[in-house]
Amino acid sequence: MISDLIVKYLNGNASEEEVELIFEWIDASEANKKEFITLKKAWMLSAVNNNNQKLAWKNLKNKINKTKPKKYKAWFKYAALLILFIAIGKITFTLLNKEKQQPNAVVLETKDASVKIELNKAHVTTPQGQIIAKQNNNEIIYKLEQTTKALEYHTLKIPLGKTFKVTLSDGTKVHLNSGTTFKYPKQFSQNSNRLVFLEGEAFFEVETDKNRPFIVNINNIGIEVLGTKFNLNSYPERQATECVLVEGSVKAFSLNQTSNNILLTPKHKASWHAASNTFKLNKVDTALYTSWIYGEIILESAHFSSFSKKLERAFNVKIVNNNKLLEAQEFSGTINFKTSTLEDILDLLKFDTFFEYHIKDNQIIISNN
């Protein structure tokens, strides 16, 4: 019976009394909440077409607007469970003029930073025409080779609104998130460790080499591995540098005191707090930290402040939220930021949270009314 009521609710046909019954059932247990989310996903996938969905949401919005003030809280509470799934690549609008929204191209700097190469061709070449690496859409691939000469470092700068991937000369694959700077040797030395430098966020798939450990220098700590998969995050707005291990093993250590270190096993996160000079270890769901490499943001009871920071980087905008009620909510769900737009998400959130927003100079300002 409850599943029938939920279907009526999702199609915008449930009465206020039926909606109250659904909310009471969801509140009864965590298992009920998870079942509600499962049914919501199934409804999204089985919808006949976008027009049917838009009509259903229009009916639902009308019921929300007719609901008495004392019931706003209940509607708002479950908006977080409903709203994010509809943003999984369904309808694409244009938030801003595309020419204005597109940031600068991904840029590669050579060893002396005097040569800056925009990456938009089949091959990455020097001004003299020498081929540095192959390019395949949003990825560059270096030739698999080593060197005995002095190392020549290259630097990739990823602008906001873009992600990128680089395959290094040892076969290691590095996924770079927006707003990230990554410095690495054009060719690794045959006789020394594989040392790279990171500012921002990246996911590493490191090729195994027992004789040459792979070391990432990030925000005064080092991450040492032999062969593994892990995510590193050290954006300026974050209070800690985070290393999330997917498989293999890594050692995180302070560059100022190498004896201050911690070993990670899969499905754990090490957080480095520079102020206290300490590491903290937690078990985590790694998908929450690595979904961005597939163009997704997975939220699990996330507040709008952390949610909005991810959207800012994904869409190259600044979000100013002046709505305290919106900030107080926790959101769970999945967003594909490669096939959806920020306007999709904000317009759908508006159905249940009663806020307004306007766009000014690439800035999204959210207000109470």
Rank of each mutant, 00 (worst) to 15 (best):
S178P: 02
K186C: 00
I83Y: 10
N282G: 05
T258G: 01
R238P: 03
L346G: 00
K269G: 05
E30I: 12
K186H: 13
K309S: 09
E356Y: 12
K149F: 00
L342M: 06
K66L: 01
I83R: 09
F355I: 01
K310F: 05
I293P: 04
A28Q: 15
N138R: 06
G179T: 02
A302T: 10
V244E: 07
I37L: 04
T208M: 14
K8L: 12
V124G: 03
N59P: 00
L81Y: 08
S46P: 00
Q363S: 11
F182L: 03
T163N: 14
E152K: 08
A80M: 06
K33Y: 10
P103I: 05
I366N: 03
E145N: 11
S367V: 08
N49Q: 02
K68Y: 04
T126N: 01
L176T: 00
N277R: 13
K360H: 11
F23D: 10
N136S: 13
W75L: 14
E20N: 09
N97K: 08
K338V: 12
E207R: 14
F315Y: 15
A113I: 06
L299D: 02
K66I: 02
L84R: 03
V244L: 04
K310Q: 15
V174H: 04
D27G: 15
L232I: 15
A74W: 11
G161V: 14
K33I: 09
M44Q: 11
E30Q: 06
L160W: 12
Q190H: 13
T180A: 03
N217L: 03
L5D: 07
C243W: 02
N65S: 07
L348C: 03
I83N: 05
W57G: 01
S308Y: 01
Q187V: 00
P69R: 14
G200L: 08
N62P: 00
L198E: 10
V225D: 08
M44H: 05
V106H: 08
Y78F: 10
E20S: 14
V317F: 10
H358M: 06
E30Y: 14
K134R: 13
K324Y: 08
N193R: 11
I365K: 04
Q239P: 06
K309Q: 15
V320P: 03
Q190W: 04
